[in-house]
Design a protein around this nucleic acid. Structure first.
Lengths: 257, 257
DNA sequence: ACTCCTAGTATGTCCGACATAGGATCGGAC
DNA sequence: GTCCGATCCTATGTCGGACATACTAGGAGT
């Protein structure tokens, strides 16, 4: 093995796929552009073609790039990206922050989907689903009471994400459950970025509690409205509240006053 | 190299990834099972490890298998499959037909999503969107009048799929548009399988027309109901009508009176 | 009985070479 | 001069063999 490559590969391999993904999401390589050829990447990262090709294939599977034999590797149009691939979703949560368009569209999607899923959950949730939701909820509560925001090893934010996942699972449909996996990084990001003052957290908890209660009481409409209210709080912290106001679902008050 | 493998690899390489996908979707390898190791697959298909590894990586990206260094390659649980990956979706349409559970869940998802998307389309469709929808609709009509069901080189079924895609695109959201790509193979499969008698086709066309008209007139509720009616006709042909009856969307009598 | 060490297996990475698919260039024929 | 084909070039696709690494399991030693 080579002396120079040792430190690079031993300490922290830069994960070529992730590096390229970051390059694309940040716009350094735009749609239609060519990315460096395999041998250049080999030299740049000090790895073999196998490794580089492996990384590139990950991006191909994500729909980010398209490889043309003999010609090169070019970035695909945004519309062809597999936004619903969990891998892509994770990258987006990591790198697409400065991209306001994507950020908005994802949030708009959540605003459309989560109330709908909450409605389904209210109709189909079993006792086991309720237990999972309540466990996550209790985790959020208990974690808040600790100084380090941890309870049984998990943080408040992790319980928050688990809460949303449990609601998706309660819809009892494979595809909706998949969407929760896709949305998980996005949810985690927003949860993490939203403000964490004491007052806001109490307010957020109360909104979560209403979702849980509506699902338990088999009240689909209330569940949808409550889920929307949760998003409304999150969206307000990120300056995206306009996406919510345009919704048809709002029936009564959403504490805007 | 073996004589037998020569013809196989020369004429049409069996696309190892697709073969393995078929094996998994058909249940020949169930969740938790190990798939043959790389060297066995090399021998079986008469190709090198590079090729086999490339195919296996495709399945990894699809969430179908998980590779553990030093141990082997095993099939993941159904819940971990990336059902929203276009590749997986295409495989499912091809191979999962005998799997009634998946078939049902996909259809249930469409029943949930398409009315919702039609509603969005009615709210946001531009003139260009209407044109795309109408073009697909006209294609369906004209193709029906031909003996070979073709018009301008495209079949009736292809226009049918295009119609659904255009409605998704009219929702003007990246993620929903993605979902149409994912659903496309499933839609194509159902369109293809549903009955094609003259009466049924006229009925189906009328239901499509109502969707288009509601979107044009900016009537979200009517659009949702009309989209549901299209699915209801499709579902009846496949013995899945029970999934529709349970829906909450039917707006007039949501409250069970 | 427990721990540590060792061998075995299958995946991960590396290297070097050739095959193949596109594009670009140069040449000749009309 | 323009059109068309053959040739060269480039970058990806495939091949084969070798070593590195991670995980399992079984045996030796205390």
């Amino acid at each position: 093995m080579s002396h120079a490559a040792t430190t690079a590969s031993r300490n922290a391999r830069p994960d070529i796929a992730e590096y390229l993904a970051e390059s694309i999401f940040s716009g350094r390589y735009g749609p239609g552009d060519f990315v460096p050829k395999e041998l250049d990447l080999c030299e740049q990262f000090g790895v073999s073609r196998s490794t580089v090709r492996s990384a590139l294939q990950t991006l191909v599977a994500a729909g980010l790039i398209k490889r043309i034999s003999g010609q090169g590797t070019r970035v695909c149009e945004l519309a062809n990206w597999h936004l619903l691939d969990p891998q892509v979703s994770a990258w987006m949560a990591k790198f697409a922050q400065p991209n306001p368009r994507i950020q908005r569209e994802i949030f708009a999607f959540r605003v459309a989907v989560e109330p709908f899923v909450a409605r389904l959950a209210a109709e189909h949730a079993t006792a086991a689903d309720l237990l999972a939701i309540e466990t996550a909820y209790e985790g959020m509560i208990h974690a808040l009471e600790r100084d380090d925001l941890r309870w049984k090893g998990q943080t408040h934010d992790e319980y928050d994400v688990a809460f949303h996942e449990a609601v998706f699972a309660a819809s009892h449909n494979l595809v909706w459950a998949q969407i929760s996996h896709v949305l998980k990084p996005a949810i985690a990001l927003l949860v993490e970025k939203s403000n964490h003052s004491a007052h806001e957290l109490n307010d957020s908890m109360e909104r979560h509690r209403r979702v849980m209660e509506a699902i338990r009481l088999r009240q689909p409409e209330q569940a949808a409205a409550a889920a929307l209210a949760v998003l409304e709080r999150t969206g307000r912290d990120l300056g995206l509240e306009d996406l919510i106001r345009a919704l048809p679902i709002l029936e009564d008050q959403t504490t805007i006053g």
